[in-house]
Amino acid sequence: MKNTEPRYLRHHFLIAMPQMADSNFAQTLIYLVEHGAEGAMGLIVNRPSGLNLAEVLEQLRPDDEYSPLCRSLPIFSGGPVHTDRGFVLHPAGPSFLATLELGALSLSTSQDVLFSIADGLGPERHLIALGYAGWEAGQLDAELAGNAWLTCPVDEEILFELPYDRRLDAAARSLGVDLSLLSPQAGHA
């Protein structure tokens, strides 16, 4: 008897296939925060927004001074939904005012995590994003069936240690796939 239970991919990477036509997601690597019958939510982890932490903090507390370290910490474009909302993905551990535990990782959405990072109090490993990627019920599943994405379990080294411009290829290589060898034409074998 074939298992017809859906396979949910929380705590996985979505790797955009070369034929991805949607410019919001072309050449992206997405960390899936949630995936279930109600839909999915993730953060693009390889597309810097051009902003840094100091520029964001200056909007929150304009009279404070921010270190050169804050000026070197990039803010990522997490996705096209609610681009005015901030998310900090970090290893589980310290909880902040608004923290969702995701197992090995946590997602914090309150300002206190940003000020903690700016003050050098951590979390030491983090990814800060504005906006998120969202899918309605069944939408991501249809995209997966249409070969728009590859998936693999999250590798925290790829997420937190690699430069952003190497993350997509590294995630694909973890599956033994070289994206440069794939055709941008969609199809099914």
Results as ranks from 00 to 15, higher is better:
121 L>C: 02
131 G>M: 03
183 S>I: 01
84 D>R: 14
27 Q>M: 07
21 A>L: 11
158 I>R: 07
120 G>M: 08
96 F>E: 05
39 G>F: 06
43 L>H: 03
7 R>C: 08
137 A>K: 07
119 D>P: 00
148 A>D: 12
41 M>I: 03
119 D>I: 10
174 S>I: 04
133 A>Q: 02
124 E>W: 03
51 L>E: 11
162 L>D: 06
112 D>N: 15
149 W>V: 01
98 A>F: 09
4 T>P: 00
37 A>Y: 06
155 D>Y: 10
158 I>W: 04
143 E>Y: 02
16 A>S: 11
180 S>H: 11
21 A>N: 09
49 S>D: 04
21 A>I: 07
68 P>W: 01
39 G>T: 00
98 A>Y: 06
62 P>T: 05
177 V>S: 15
43 L>D: 04
36 G>R: 08
169 D>T: 01
107 L>H: 03
88 V>H: 10
13 F>S: 13
4 T>V: 06
57 L>I: 03
65 E>G: 14
137 A>S: 09
71 R>L: 11
45 V>D: 08
39 G>Y: 01
148 A>K: 05
119 D>M: 07
39 G>N: 13
128 I>M: 12
165 D>F: 07
26 A>N: 13
54 A>E: 10
145 A>Q: 08
159 L>G: 11
148 A>E: 10
2 K>P: 04
85 R>H: 12
33 V>I: 07
58 E>M: 07
32 L>Q: 04
65 E>W: 00
3 N>Y: 09
54 A>G: 11
69 L>T: 12
73 L>T: 14
15 I>K: 09
150 L>Q: 09
29 L>E: 11
90 H>Y: 02
71 R>W: 15
167 R>V: 04
176 G>L: 06
80 P>L: 09
174 S>V: 00
171 A>K: 10
43 L>P: 00
87 F>R: 02
127 L>I: 04
95 S>L: 03
96 F>D: 03
73 L>E: 14
50 G>R: 13
106 S>H: 10
1 M>N: 06
53 L>N: 01
24 N>C: 09
189 A>T: 09
115 F>V: 05
44 I>L: 09
180 S>E: 06
157 E>T: 09
47 R>Q: 11
176 G>S: 11
25 F>E: 10
4 T>E: 13
76 F>P: 01
22 D>A: 14
161 E>C: 11
105 L>K: 05
123 P>R: 10
